[in-house]
């Protein structure tokens, strides 16, 4: 049995909006620590690693580790139906021995996940059931690495720079010096460089 109640429902909506363009199908792994997802995009250049810790949920129960394969587009469609301040509950039954028992109970609980949305004043409850997929994929681990440099910057700023540069060229080169970080690209119409100086407000280079 897996059950997780998230008060701040919009969080899940936002997260899903962000990743659904990168990844189409993925396994959500539920364990005692939390609700996590790890997948690569289809061209294998981006790895999405998502972890919603158990502590972050209002109620979190996970009897045993289970993997739930979902089509993220379909999931996003359902989450669109939730209001921004709704409370989302994710529920799934664990089917124990999938291999041996699947034929006897092929439908319903076993391969569906239920989302429950409650509006804060408790006057509306809707539940959606989604068929799960059986996704056979391998787990990837990211080895601990010593990084030569670490840069922290506002994500909005980073997104902006990338968006701007993408109008000039296809690829962006990132170089980091003591003074700051430089993004550069070149294309048919010319080339572009954006340099962000290191500043004190956000700390940087290790």
């Amino acid at each position: 049995m897996f059950e997780a109640r998230l008060i701040q429902g919009s969080l899940l909506k936002k997260v899903l909006e962000a990743i659904k363009d990168l990844v189409t199908d993925a396994n959500f792994d539920c364990s005692a620590t939390g609700f996590s997802l790890q997948a690569m995009d289809s061209s294998h250049v981006a790895l999405v690693a998502l972890l919603l810790r158990g502590e972050g949920f209002d109620h979190y129960r996970c009897d045993r580790n289970i993997s739930m394969g979902m089509n993220l587009n379909n999931m996003a469609k359902m989450l669109k139906c939730a209001g921004n301040d709704d409370i989302i509950t994710i529920k799934a039954d664990d089917e124990g021995n999938t291999v041996t028992f699947m034929f006897e109970s092929p439908n319903d609980e076993g391969n569906t996940v239920t989302f429950m949305f409650e509006s804060p004043n408790q006057d509306k409850i809707s539940d959606f059931e989604m068929k799960l997929m059986d996704i056979d994929s391998e787990h990837l681990g990211i080895p601990d690495t010593d990084y030569a440099s670490t840069v922290k910057m506002p994500s909005a700023e980073f997104a902006r720079i990338c968006r701007d540069l993408s109008t000039i060229g296809d690829t962006v080169g990132i170089s980091v010096t003591k003074d700051g970080i430089k993004f550069s690209t070149a294309g048919d119409i010319g080339n572009a460089n954006v340099t962000c100086r290191q500043n004190k407000t956000v700390d940087k280079v290790k």
């Binding site: 199908d25 690569m40 294998h44 981006a46 996704i135 391998e138 787990h139 990837l140 681990g141």
Partner: peptide, 23 residues
């Protein structure tokens, strides 16, 4: 159509970096 397999390639940008984890 709801059973799929996602293969993990041995080449490609991310695979230079990430390692397969045993399950």
């Amino acid at each position: 159509t709801r059973s799929v397999s996602i293969a993990t390639p041995s080449v490609g940008g991310m695979m230079k970096y990430a390692k397969k984890r045993r399950s």
